[in-house]
Amino acid sequence: MRNTLTIAQRELFSFFYSPIAYVVIALFVFIASSFFIARTFSPGQVAEMNKLFEALIWVLILIAPAISMRLISEELNTGTIESLATAPVSDAALILGKWLGALACYACTLLPTLAFCFYLELYANPDYGPIASGYLGLVLVGALYLAIGVFASALTQNQIIAFVTTVFIILVFTVFTYYMPGLIGSADTSLLAANISLSVAAPLIPITVTAVAVIARLATASNSFTATATIITLVALVALWALLAIPSAHTLARIASYLNINEHYYDFAKGVIDLSDIVFFVSAAGLFLAFAVVAMESRRWR
């Protein structure tokens, strides 16, 4: 635990040492301010920030990976990982510390936007409940994105690959899961729906398998590991596909919309704090952090 906090602290320090910090903060504050002025801060508008929050959630898709991409990739690239991995620091403490540090950096990025509350207070009487829940939601979404980012960063010593991988995974859980139920739901009869879901999901299998193969090969440089990972992914996906496509297309649609990050976020933006949404974010972040620990351990054992 002590090591986790030590690592988090150093991460926060290093964030402000790197130019990325200032680019990220400036970009975020600029975009947030633009949305605030254009969509919230105008006469006749209700003094609330939910439209701003719903816009910011998309900005995070680029902001969070920019914060997380260097976390482990840089250590792998410069070789400092060798000192860390031979010091008495466990992989779990390392990953958790990196993530907490990134979360603190992200909090520093959000901090300037609190000034918007001050402007609303000057001209109106804003309801702080939904604003607070909106910020809670932003923190939870950021925590999940950063967990995905830590995982991607643990896979490669190339920060750009880490960034792109993170954005890709986030897009799967936002854009892809948003459109998929729509495609399936448009069918009326369950038989037709099943066929459509089959045809929609089928091309995903080779795409995902290829992505897994490429990432595994890049990350491990081991042919046997790549082959094993690819075969396991292929078998799992085909099994999942058959399982989902056969009983009901609507099951698939429901799963997709459950996995959609934005769906979980919009409640927060509206001022609703639902425990199931919190459970979703916390468990999803935990899952990706666990993946990251596995990625670190696999690096050691090859």
Binding site: T6, F13, S14, T80, I81
Partner: peptide
């Protein structure tokens, strides 16, 4: 391998804390 952004003293304190 050392952290270029840290001062020498900070680097040594960091690893001292790990131990």
């Amino acid at each position: 391998p050392l952290y270029p952004e840290l001062r020498v003293r900070e680097q040594l304190h960091l690893f001292g804390r790990f131990h």
